Simulated scan of single mutants.
Amino acid sequence: MEFVFSGRVIEWRGPAPYYFVRVPDEESADIREVAAMATYGWGVIPVEARVGEVEFATSLFPRDGGYLLPLKAAVRKPSGLTAGDDVTVEMTVRLHGPRSG
Rank of each mutant, 00 (worst) to 15 (best):
V54M: 08
K77M: 08
A35G: 03
I10R: 00
V51W: 01
P17V: 05
G66N: 11
F56A: 08
I45Q: 09
L81H: 07
G65R: 10
S28E: 10
G52S: 08
T88F: 00
G80N: 12
P15S: 14
V87R: 01
L81A: 10
S59C: 06
D25E: 15
S79A: 15
I10N: 01
G65D: 09
D86R: 14
V4D: 14
E2A: 11
R13H: 13
F56M: 07
A38T: 05
A16R: 15
V89L: 01
T39A: 10
P98I: 01
R94W: 00
W42T: 02
M91S: 05
I31S: 03
M1Q: 11
T88H: 05
E55Q: 11
A73Y: 01
P62H: 07
D86F: 01
V23I: 13
L71Y: 04
S6K: 15
R50E: 15
V51E: 02
A38P: 03
E27M: 13
R76E: 02
I31P: 03
T58D: 06
A73H: 06
A57F: 04
A16E: 13
P70R: 09
P46Q: 12
R13E: 14
V9P: 11
G65S: 07
V51M: 05
R99E: 11
E55L: 02
T39P: 03
H96D: 09
H96A: 12
R99K: 12
P78I: 03
D30W: 04
P98A: 12
R32S: 10
E26D: 14
G80A: 11
W42D: 07
G14F: 02
A16D: 10
I45G: 11
E55H: 04
M1N: 10
A83I: 05
M91E: 02
S100L: 14
